[in-house]
């Protein structure tokens, strides 16, 4: 288990680095997909089956495909390197380093992080998988956010259509 964790974590991280480093946008997109796969595996390791599948379906399947479409549609060129962007690297590096340092400090201090991953003792049966549970919650407690999200999607669709129109002469 631990071993698997490290492998998939590595996928996620290396994919992420790949996004940042690759000059070719298509390559960057593919690295992103790899990262998402790793993340999905981590989700499944955490007993979040539905969400893991959703991650692959929606994120990697729909969102990244969308990205690739746009990249190819707009014929985005490779990024040329201008003169060495010193300040950018220094600034970005500083911020990131600071963030990571703080992360480590916080994790070391907080006690909650030392909880161990214990297998779950839950009842087996028909209506007890996480899909069922999430479904129950969605349609009972969180029914209102569903409506809102539905409207959000509608709005997004309309927005995209409006934004993509060419100027009417």
């Amino acid at each position: 288990m631990t071993f698997l964790f490290y492998i998939f974590a590595a996928f996620a991280l290396i994919g992420g680095i790949g996004v940042v480093v690759n000059k070719n946008p298509v390559s960057a997109a593919f690295s992103m997909v790899l990262s998402f796969l790793g993340l999905a595996a981590l989700f499944i390791q955490l007993n979040a089956f539905l969400v893991g599948i959703l991650q692959i379906l929606v994120y990697a399947g729909a969102i990244m495909v969308l990205f690739l479409f746009i990249i190819m549609l707009m014929d985005v060129p490779e990024e040329e390197r201008k003169r060495f962007p010193f300040f950018t690297f220094v600034g970005a590096g500083g911020v990131v380093a600071g963030f990571v340092a703080l992360l480590v400090i916080v994790l070391k201090r907080a006690e909650i992080g030392t909880a161990k991953l214990v297998p779950l003792e839950k009842a087996e049966g028909v209506g007890t998988s996480d899909v069922h549970r999430i479904g129950e919650l969605l349609f009972s407690q969180y029914w209102f956010p569903i409506q809102v999200v539905a409207i959000l999607l509608l709005v997004a669709t309309v927005g995209v259509v409006v934004l993509s129109k060419k100027e009417l002469k």
């Binding site: 991280l13 963030f99 990571v100 992360l103 994790l107 030392t114 161990k116």
Partner: peptide
Amino acid sequence: LTLNHFLLVSGLLFAI
């Protein structure tokens, strides 16, 4: 595995 592992991975990914 502890929670810290996952949080660390997540944090690093965020930083990247």
